[in-house]
Design a protein around this nucleic acid. Structure first.
Lengths: 194, 194
DNA sequence: TCGGAAATCCGAACAGCGTTAGGAATTATG
DNA sequence: CATAATTCCTAACGCTGTTCGGATTTCCGA
């Protein structure tokens, strides 16, 4: 039985470890997460962490999954996309994404820059990211944008806005404000990429 | 006198160190550059590197400057921008940039993703990057694009194309092919961002 | 309730990292 | 030729992620 008391306690400890890891990542930077201080923040010893995660990479992996789940929830919080025009829904989606990236630099670096040397998300963790990408592909499809070239141009545009925002005006809105003009620009020549 | 035999030999050794560092970065990844193997590749000992660079960060710094100089030369190799139309020169510039990024993943990560935990370019190294940015700003100005919003949208668009290309199709042309449609899209609504 | 099993923890240690100290060897120069 | 500057290396320090071995605690069925 995987839902016994031990499993619940184990899951709670894992969550606490990830929570502390996020906190360190936000204050010290994503690369500043190290095992001994992380363990100390939880009142335990570094080797004890290995009872819960196979290693530091597995911790990053779990954080990567958490981040992608948070992104999915954020995007799905825009419930009534159906009632919006294509333009409105694109603006809402892109704005939500850029805001999400702009909220937490460490999370952005983990999810979208591959910022930890030598680390790559595991196959199952990456699958969660693909799932998110698929959702936004479905969104664009629902408003009639289906060609790979159009989708690629859209992802480049939105990710460019997000990365510029995070890198050059973190927490601000210098590129966030450009979401609306960017959507208009994108829609104005949609079809030109066919 | 800084141009004596000793200074020349010293400069040659520094170049050799950077050369070996680039080679390791290209094969092992940017974060895979470590002092002892780097020194070993040059037949010397790790502490000897400190005769030439203040530390590992200083090596990254010098690589950062080298990379930006290479970018400037590449961009300036497009000599006859004057004889092109605005559209042609934008296409040429963006294509050159994306190609430059796509050639060397390690170089791209060093210059444009801030991929080494805890490392930031020094002020004087960053100045070289600003110099490059200023050149492309001048280019856009010369074709009548002056507003900050337009410039920001342009940088987001081009950097988005480059990062998507490098991350998802390294060495390929999936996003490189989108440079031309992207420029058309950008120009079609230029003025809408005022 | 007792006892074996499972879960959890920790101290010690290993290899690798960037870096420093101190001194020896080489090279340049007055 | 001798002094000074340059260049190099060995040893070591504190940090990193990680493993080992064993002790301690917690669970759970007889």
């Amino acid at each position: 039985m995987t839902t016994g008391r031990v499993a619940a306690r184990r899951a709670a400890t894992k969550d606490a470890i990830l929570e502390a890891a996020w906190e360190i990542a936000r204050s010290e930077g994503l690369g500043g997460v190290s095992m001994r201080p992380l363990a100390a923040a939880l009142g335990m010893s570094a080797p004890s962490l290995y009872e819960y995660f196979a290693g530091k990479d597995a911790i990053y992996d779990a954080m990567y999954v958490q981040g992608n789940h948070a992104l999915r929830e954020r995007m799905q919080a825009i419930t009534d996309l159906d009632r919006m025009s294509a333009r409105e829904s694109l603006v809402a989606g892109a704005r939500a994404f850029v805001e999400f990236c702009n909220e937490d630099r460490a999370r952005f670096q983990l999810l979208f820059q591959h910022s930890i040397p030598g680390w790559h998300p595991s196959e199952q963790a990456y699958a969660v990211a693909i799932e998110n990408l698929e959702l936004s592909r479905a969104h664009l499809e629902s408003i009639g944008i289906t060609h790979t070239r159009s989708l690629d141009l859209w992802t480049a545009l939105v990710s460019g806005l997000a990365s510029q925002q995070v890198a050059n005006d973190p927490g601000g809105d210098r590129w966030l404000r450009l979401v609306e003009p960017a959507v208009d620009m994108f829609l104005s020549t949609e079809g030109g990429t066919k």
